[in-house]
C-alpha cells in the first residue's frame, strides 16, 4: 500500500513538472495555431544552459533560471522573426518542415559541441522529506510548487491584464482583434517568446532531476504533446491535469511493467492516447484532429 502511495505521489509531482514543460507548447498552439516541432530542442538548449551555469559558476539550477528565462525569451523571439514569421503565410507544410529542420539543426549542433554524453548536476538537497512512510524528493516538490505558482500567475495574467485580454481576443478572432487595434503580429511574437521562456523555466526545474543529452528533446516533446492533447489544446489548467495523469501512469508502469517497456513508454503512451483519446480527457472537440493552419 505504501509503495502504491509512494508511486502515486511521485507521479503527481513529476507530472506537475511535465505540465510546466507543456504549457509553452499549448500556449503557442492556442494562439498561433502552429506546432513548434523544435519545442523539445528548446528545452534541451535551456537544460544545457542551466547545466553550464551550475557547473561553471557553481550556482544552483534554480538560480540559473534568472538568466535562462530571459535568454530563452530572446531566443524564442529570434526564432520567431527568422523562421516562424516568414513561414506563417505559406502553406502549412512550410512551418512543419522548417521547425522540424530547426530541431535537427539544434540536435546536431549540440552533438558537435557537447558530444552525446549524458550531463547532469550534483544533487542539491542531501535528503528527502518523509511524511509517514512516504519519501518525497525536495527537487520534485519544489518543481511542483513552481509549476503551480506559474500556472496561477499565467492564468491571472491572461484573465486580467491588457496583454492577456489581447491574447484572448487574438485567439477568438485574429482579424477582428486586428481591427480593434490589437497588434496581432506583436502578440504572436510575445506568445512565441513567452512560450520559449516557460520552457527555459521548465529546463531549470528539470535539470536537477534529469540528465541532458542532445536528443533528450524527443522524449519530452512527445510527453508534452500527449499532455497538450489530453488536457485540451490551448488550456493551461488542462495541461496541469494532463501532466499529472501522464506522471502517475509513468510512475506506476515503470514499477509494475517490465523495464524494457520503460524505454518505449513515451512512444507507446503517445500512440495509445492518439488512438483512443485524440479529443483529450474531457472530450474537447477536435484537439488532435485539428488541421495545421485551419
Amino acid at each position: 500500500m505504501s509503495t502504491l502511495g509512494q508511486l502515486v505521489i511521485s507521479g503527481i509531482l513529476i507530472g506537475g513538472i511535465y505540465a510546466l514543460m507543456s504549457i509553452g507548447l499549448t500556449l503557442i498552439f492556442g494562439v498561433l495555431r502552429i506546432v513548434n516541432f523544435a519545442h523539445g530542442e528548446f528545452l534541451m538548449v535551456a537544460m544545457y544552459g542551466a547545466w553550464a551555469i551550475t557547473r561553471l559558476l557553481g550556482l544552483n539550477p534554480y538560480v540559473a533560471a534568472v538568466a535562462i528565462v530571459p535568454a530563452m525569451f530572446l531566443f524564442g523571439a529570434i526564432v520567431y522573426r527568422m523562421i516562424i514569421n516568414p513561414a506563417l503565410d505559406k502553406p502549412h507544410l512550410v512551418v512543419v518542415f522548417a521547425t522540424m529542420a530547426l530541431s535537427i539543426f539544434m540536435q546536431n549542433v549540440a552533438l558537435m559541441m557537447m558530444t552525446a554524453d549524458l550531463m547532469d548536476v550534483p544533487p542539491i538537497f542531501g535528503r528527502s522529506i518523509t511524511i509517514g512512510p512516504i519519501y518525497i524528493k525536495v527537487e520534485l516538490l519544489l518543481g511542483f510548487i513552481i509549476t503551480i505558482l506559474c500556472t496561477v500567475a499565467l492564468q491571472w495574467m491572461i484573465k486580467t491584464t491588457y496583454l492577456g485580454k489581447a491574447i484572448r481576443a487574438t485567439v477568438q478572432d485574429g482579424e477582428a482583434a486586428m481591427l480593434m487595434g490589437i497588434p496581432v503580429p506583436r502578440i504572436f511574437l510575445i506568445t512565441f517568446a513567452g512560450g520559449s521562456a516557460l520552457v527555459g523555466l521548465a529546463a531549470c526545474v528539470m535539470m536537477p532531476l534529469f540528465s541532458v543529452f542532445p536528443t533528450v528533446g524527443l522524449n519530452f516533446v512527445l510527453i508534452a504533446f500527449v499532455i497538450v492533447v489530453l488536457g485540451g489544446m490551448g488550456s493551461i489548467e488542462g495541461a496541469l491535469l494532463g501532466g499529472i495523469c501522464v506522471g502517475v501512469v509513468q510512475s506506476l508502469s515503470s514499477y509494475y511493467v517490465a523495464p524494457a517497456f520503460g524505454q518505449m513508454f513515451f512512444f507507446v503512451l503517445f500512440l495509445f492516447v492518439m488512438i483512443f483519446r485524440p479529443n483529450g480527457l474531457l472530450g474537447q472537440k477536435g484537439a488532435a484532429t485539428i488541421g495545421m493552419n485551419e
Partner: peptide
C-alpha cells in the same frame, strides 16, 4: 489505420513515435 483520425502535427508525431516503438522492439 492507427492514425486514421489524426491530421497535421499529430499524424507526424505518431509516425515518429511508431518508428521509435519499432526501433526499440527490434533492439530488444
Amino acid at each position: 489505420l492507427i492514425c486514421a483520425r489524426l491530421r497535421g502535427p499529430f499524424f507526424i508525431l505518431s509516425t515518429l513515435a511508431f518508428a521509435e516503438v519499432v526501433r526499440i522492439g527490434a533492439l530488444n
